[in-house]
Design a protein around this nucleic acid. Structure first.
Lengths: 226, 226
DNA sequence: TTGAGCCTCCTACCGAAGGAGGAGGCCCTC
DNA sequence: GAGGGCCTCCTCCTTCGGTAGGAGGCTCAA
């Protein structure tokens, strides 16, 4: 027997959700709220609240700021977002802010009930259909867009860059690679020029944005293959 | 009947996982790999692969870069991270990169099996114990665990560190904060001393490991609250 | 009121970083 | 065999980064 609260400013939607829960999770007690203020007010009265279903469009809590405020005010209260928004980014941000789940309003009732049941048992729910297909639209940009530059680095330059990324000084790199420090400087200069940056720090930022490790492994692999 | 692959460079750990899966998900076919290269090689042979259990410590794929590379190379392959790391930040980043789940190595075997079963049915798994308590326990542990040092930085020092992390020079930081370059140097020196490192580059590495952004937001929030 | 902590700025000094330019050796390709 | 690319190393020079030490002003708490 659980106590749930539905926070949404559309009475019709609240009723619809309530009907689904009544049918699917019989015996649950249901509270309703149409604003963040109302949530806070009622939550103080009902200590035994198990879960809040929070819409992201409340009049006094636009977007995720409402969730953030709630997490600060009532950290003990598990909150699941119920929203029409379906962006991966929003979903992850909600989880980052401490939501225990994110349910798109387009979710069919069976899936919704299963999600709520899982959450009440302590699990986290994310919409699989949205979360399981990100790379479809993103695979190309990182390698191609972020740094066509990295591809132009020679093997030795990549080795040097890898050590730069670990915070090594020119002197240390020289020792590690068993070459002169002046040679290291030559490599570093070439790296900076190719990456179009002005300092080793910026080179590092470019490098790990462009996933240096992968590229390095690739390079080493190529060498082994050859 | 599913086909799973375990990618971890520790044979003992692979065997341990294999044993758990054998017992808990009987009939599953299990493949093993000790490097990212090996995963790619085998994945081409076994088209019917249903799930990859990926460790974050592979020799040729440090951290999440390996996941990213995998998602690009084999977007159709569902990947669940199995790692000793337990930072919320890492977990969310993994999901953002398209992982279908994140299982800490400390997860008890029953929970592990349940997680895998859920994932094979199309759900997303996040460790509830970690994800469900951010505001309550998060303020303390990161400061305490990852770097007791960062907590000792003053507000101004954090501002400077944030700019260091963007690759800014002392001169630029001075302009941005509208203070003298010598003052910036004073701050930088203090930061290096407190973090126990020898150069700005290393300070940056410590900073982003310890989730500087979060801490900075926290600090700014505190200031607003006051 | 005194002191502690922080921010500010300074001088002086030194080593690290980076640019410019040149040079020899190696390997590969045309 | 003549070039091109890469790695190696050098000198000379400038700028940047970082330390040491001192000093004044501020706020807050004892």
């Amino acid at each position: 027997m659980h106590t749930l609260m539905i926070a949404d400013d559309h009475p019709l939607f609240r009723d619809a959700i309530a009907a689904v829960i009544d049918a699917g999770l019989p015996g649950s007690r249901l509270l309703q709220a149409d604003s963040l203020a109302e949530v806070l007010r009622q939550a103080e009265a009902f200590e035994a609240l198990d879960l809040l279903l929070l819409d992201l469009g409340l009049p006094d809590a636009e977007g995720l700021s409402g969730l953030q405020a709630l997490r600060e005010a009532l950290p003990w209260l598990p909150v699941v977002i119920v929203s029409a928004k379906q962006e991966r980014h929003t979903i992850l941000e909600a989880i980052d802010l401490g939501a225990v789940g994110y349910i798109p309003k387009s979710t069919p009732r069976e899936a919704l009930l299963a999600a709520l049941a899982g959450i009440l048992e302590g699990r986290i729910y994310l919409p699989p259909d949205i979360m399981r297909r990100p790379p479809a639209t993103r695979p190309t940009p990182p390698p191609a867009d972020l740094s066509p530059h990295l591809a132009t680095l020679t093997a030795k330059q990549l080795e040097v860059l890898a050590r730069l990324s670990r915070g090594a000084s020119n002197k240390l790199i020289a020792r590690e690679l068993d070459i002169a420090e002046t040679t290291v400087k030559t490599h570093v200069s070439a790296i900076l020029r190719k990456l179009g940056v002005a300092s080793r720090v910026q080179a590092i930022l470019v490098a790990d944005q462009a996933d240096l490790a992968t590229r390095l492994a690739q390079h080493r692999q190529d060498r082994l293959d050859a």
